[in-house]
């Protein structure tokens, strides 16, 4: 079985895309769908309307830096984003993304990717294929335990699956 995700189209952003840009504080009180529709509008007003299922976010340093609000990762997942590739991440965003079943990978060569490039990601191997240019970039690997959780759709779905299979919440240490 291939662990590779279906290819997606790249949306390219710069450095320091913070959680206030991903999930603007002014919309935090209201319905989540409303919040998601304002995702990244301060840097690209058309993003939330035009992003399609399977698309990927490509960014520079410190993606998701700022607050712990997981709506930042959730908004991207809700809009159909399948993976985020960045040179580095805010630590909490990185945890939140994986816990919500959104693939987040550190990719030092993310700057070589252009908007609209078609990308295929393999988190188990640690590689990103740029189908538009033929280039291949290294990225970090996700250990099997985390990859299982992400593939199950995130932490809650993972616990749910274990529970329904009669397994304990965690493997024995």
């Amino acid at each position: 079985m291939s662990s590779e995700q279906a290819p997606g189209r790249a949306w390219v952003f710069g450095d320091d895309v913070n959680t206030d840009l991903l999930a603007p504080g002014a919309y935090m009180k209201g319905p989540f769908e409303m919040l998601a529709s304002h995702c990244l509008e301060a840097v690209d007003p058309m993003f939330a309307q035009q992003v399609q299922a399977g698309d990927m976010i490509v960014a520079g340093e410190n993606f998701g830096i700022g607050s712990s609000r997981e709506q930042a990762a959730q908004a991207l997942k809700h809009l159909g984003v399948s993976a985020v590739l960045a040179r580095s991440f805010g630590g909490i965003f990185f945890r939140n993304a994986l816990n919500l079943g959104l693939v987040a990978l550190t990719c030092p060569d993310s700057g070589r990717i252009r908007a609209g490039d078609r990308l295929a990601v393999d988190a188990a191997v640690g590689a990103v294929d740029n189908l538009s240019t033929g280039e291949r970039y290294p990225c970090n690997r996700l250990p099997p335990k985390l990859l299982d959780m992400v593939r199950d759709g995130g932490l809650i779905a993972h616990l749910e699956k274990r529970q329904s299979n009669g397994k304990p919440d965690q493997d024995e240490r």
């Binding site: 997981e70 945890r95 939140n96």
Partner: peptide
């Protein structure tokens, strides 16, 4: 710091 899903996992397990 952790997010809400992470927190739910902590609260349960």
């Amino acid at each position: 710091g952790i997010g809400a899903t992470d927190m739910a996992g902590v609260l349960i397990t």
